[in-house]
Design a binder for these strands. Sequence first.
DNA 1: ATCCGGACCTGGTCGC
DNA 2: TGCGACCAGGTCCGGA
Length: 281
Amino acid sequence: MPELPEVETVRRGLQPHLEGQRIARAEARRPDLRWPLPPDLVQVLTGATVTALRRRSKYLLADLDRGGTLLMHLGMSGRLLVEGAGLAGFHRDPSILSRHDHVVFVTGAGTTITFNDARRFGMIDLIREGEAHPLLAHLGSEPFDPDFDTGYLAAAFTGRRAPVKQALLDQRIVAGLGNIYVSEALHRAGIDPRRAAGRIGEERIAALVGHIRDVLTDAIAAGGSSLRDHRQATGELGYFQHSFRVYNRENAPCPNQGCTGHIRRIVQSGRSSFFCPRCQR
DNA sequence: ATCCGGACCTGGTCGC
DNA sequence: TGCGACCAGGTCCGGA
């Protein structure tokens, strides 16, 4: 499911319920997700207060007052749902857990936060105080950070013969892009996803940087994209899927003004890419 | 160093 | 209605 906009949407929904809140209770309902949960997860979390809820790439990080950080990734189908008396939105009874509710947190305010993940590609881990985490070690620039600019991306692309689609999916280059937003950004930038990353001119890279930021900004404003699994923390759907220009739109006319092309779907490294062969070069 | 394919796991959809 | 094949928003790993 979740690329940067979806994770950021979840973060924003969770933040008011977690930051400054004590975790009164934590429950791990199975020993593993993609990887084993830390054996002391419940012990470390119980009684800890979350001082900040941050995002890095597609990871959520909850800093704990007693030191250390809770690290979470939603994988493909993960959800973090906030429920509790008096909250807006539609809710299940938090006392009724479903098959895929794997980890549950209850805050001092009585709010329940459930990590639900049908496919179990998600992960939860602890970053110990003063330690680095291997999963975060090699991430590239955040698209919204000032250091993500034309020079940075041009340098990262230099000499790369792989298709630009693949280069943009590489989290060591740009952190947070996934299959949807790479297709959307390349269409906005007029770049063919099959083009070798190292063979894109500086001006077009400059435009691409802007389009990446724009499409992510638009998607966050829409609460992310809900194709099947994504839910905001409130349980609501995101609605950016209605604004897709190419993703999942095979054979549809290209939305660009004056373009007579039609959207094509191809497979690159085993994953779908959508683009307009007419205006993406 | 790069790149590709397979693996992880479940559920939804589509065609027969 | 049932069943198998195929597809899905991610990313780690091993081998070429």
